[in-house]
Amino acid sequence: MSRERRRREEEAAREWKGAYRPYDIVREATIAFGVVLALTLALTILFSSPDDPPSTIKQWSRSDPVDFVTTATTELDGSSTTGGYGPPYNHSSDGQHIGFIHLQKWLGVSHPIDTATDFVLAPVRSLTAQPALQSALSTYQAATSKTQTGWTSAYEKALGNASAKADGSISVKAGDYGPLPTIMGSLLTFAQSGGLDGALLTSRQFYQTDYTKPLLFMADGGVLSSRAQAEHLLGTQWGMMNETGSYPGQSWLWLYTFWYQIKPFSTSTNADILVMAIMGVLSLAFILVPFLPGLRDLPRRIPIYKLIWREHYRTLRAGR
């Protein structure tokens, strides 16, 4: 379109010379609000998210005591996912990065967590009415790091063939595990009673809002991943844009979760920060569309607006 022709069209559009008809915007808004409200109520009744009960350490330790004790043992020796995560929980690693950009490291440890102390030793230490347990704790803490590692390594290996008993305890093949069977047995009983759920809360307020520690503990085990898989919420299942069960989810997140389905993101330990960087660049490009030569001219080169306002342009042509 030439500059002169564009100028003539803009000049002609300054004053509307076509017909007029009444338009009650209040009436239209009321009708639109009523329709949207009715659709919202109907869709809420038909497709609302199910009110599933939350996962708890009590439920986990009762349904799969072997997995619970195995996870607790990895927390004790620091080999769990949380134990080696790095900031914001500990200094075990630098966290995810892109080149010289280490966001986790720069932001530092804001929620310090010592998995051995917070998830195992401190909770069982609070059970002061059990002399045998307190003696086992003293034995473990008095041992050298090498001895502790030997106990936890042997116990973790034995737990691979452990089984749950009818009373909720576990059966482990005899071996040199030091005081670990006593410590883990007491921790398991404490968890099955529901006490560990409360012991891991960091807030002492009436309304609890910080469930970081219980969630991290469960995430290190298999309970949350198994439940997420059953509900199609894993990252490999496009879980970020899914709702629980087969209900409609957040479809607008398709592009964000798309990157996690392809390499190198699906196999990278830095996937989160890589995807965040890509989405940041794409979002910035979208914001800058009005300022980018070529892109900003697409609406003029692809005259969809003429189809939308075809009546207006038809009137213009008729008036010439």
Rank of each mutant, 00 (worst) to 15 (best):
R3Y: 15
R3Q: 14
E4L: 12
R5H: 15
R5Y: 14
E9L: 15
E9D: 04
E10C: 13
E11T: 06
E15D: 11
G18Q: 09
Y23L: 11
V35S: 06
V36F: 11
V36M: 13
V36T: 07
L37F: 15
A38S: 13
L41Q: 08
L43S: 10
I45N: 10
F47L: 15
S48F: 13
S48Y: 11
D51M: 13
D51H: 12
P54Y: 03
S55D: 14
T56R: 02
I57M: 06
I57R: 00
Q59I: 04
W60E: 00
S61K: 05
V69W: 00
T70N: 03
A72D: 02
T74M: 07
L76A: 01
S80T: 03
G83R: 04
G84Q: 01
G84T: 08
G84S: 09
G84V: 10
G86S: 03
P88G: 01
Y89W: 04
S92V: 09
F100P: 05
H102G: 06
Q104N: 14
Q104D: 13
W106R: 14
W106S: 12
I113P: 01
A116K: 00
D118K: 03
D118E: 00
L121D: 02
A122K: 15
V124P: 03
S126Q: 09
Q134C: 04
S135C: 08
L137Q: 03
K146R: 13
T147F: 14
Q148F: 10
T152K: 01
T152W: 04
S153P: 10
A154V: 05
A154R: 00
E156V: 10
A158Q: 02
L159I: 03
G160L: 04
K165W: 05
V172E: 03
V172R: 01
A174Y: 03
G175E: 11
G175T: 12
P179V: 03
P181I: 13
T182R: 01
T182P: 01
I183P: 02
M184K: 03
G185K: 00
S186P: 06
S186F: 08
L187E: 04
L187W: 04
S193P: 08
G194V: 13
G194M: 06
G195T: 08
G198S: 09
A199H: 08
A199K: 07
L200V: 07
S203E: 08
S203M: 12
R204K: 14
Q208I: 13
T209E: 11
Y211R: 01
T212R: 07
L215D: 06
L216Q: 01
A219T: 11
G221L: 00
G221I: 01
G221T: 03
S225V: 04
S225Q: 09
Q229W: 10
A230S: 08
G235H: 06
T236Q: 06
T236V: 12
M240K: 12
M240A: 14
T244E: 07
Y247K: 12
L253N: 12
F258P: 02
K263Q: 14
P264H: 10
T267V: 06
V275C: 00
M279V: 06
L284Y: 06
A285Y: 10
A285D: 05
L288C: 07
L288G: 04
F291T: 15
G294I: 10
D297M: 15
R301K: 15
I302Q: 12
I304G: 10
L307P: 09
I308M: 14
W309T: 07
R310E: 07
R310Q: 14
R314V: 07
L316W: 10
